[in-house]
Simulated scan of single mutants.
Amino acid sequence: MSSGAFAHPDHDDEPQQTIKLNASSSASGVMVYLTDKGAKVPTAGASGKLVWFKGEAALQPVADNGMEAKGAKPPVGSKMQASITFADKTVFIGDVAVK
């Protein structure tokens, strides 16, 4: 399942970025992938946090557009919120459900 959210630009004249999140369970935790209009959103240098009911885990960049929450084990279908700070210090907050 995926969910979309909007990043808020600092200036009104800048175009809004539309980022979609896709999350899935892996053997080591939860993987979250970011895309913008089908293009991979680079996550190198990013950090973040994944929060769900009764839990939270740190997000670390992996692959081109992935963030991993190692050790996270939310129940399948859990609604979560990802807060990601990119290398350029912009912040994205979006909702996602784990498959």
Rank of each mutant, 00 (worst) to 15 (best):
V62N: 12
T18K: 02
S3C: 10
F92P: 00
A46T: 13
L50G: 14
A63G: 04
P9Y: 14
K40H: 08
G94K: 00
K70W: 08
A7F: 07
A39E: 08
E68S: 14
T85A: 02
S83I: 02
V62C: 10
K20I: 04
I84L: 01
L59M: 05
A82W: 02
D36Q: 13
G45I: 13
K70R: 12
P61M: 10
S2R: 02
N65V: 06
F6V: 09
P61T: 11
S26D: 11
A69T: 12
G55P: 08
F86R: 06
D10L: 15
A58Y: 12
W52A: 04
K20D: 06
A72K: 01
M31C: 01
E14P: 13
D36S: 11
A39Y: 02
M1W: 03
A82G: 04
S25D: 07
M31V: 03
G48M: 08
T35I: 11
T85E: 11
A57Q: 14
K99R: 00
Q60W: 10
W52L: 05
G66W: 04
A63M: 05
I93N: 06
M67I: 03
G55I: 07
V41I: 03
P15K: 14
A44S: 11
I93M: 08
S25N: 07
A23T: 01
L21S: 00
D95I: 06
E14H: 11
P75S: 04
K54G: 12
G29Q: 09
K54R: 15
K54A: 15
H8G: 15
G77K: 00
F92T: 02
T85D: 04
I93C: 03
A58H: 06
G29T: 08
L34G: 03
Q16H: 07
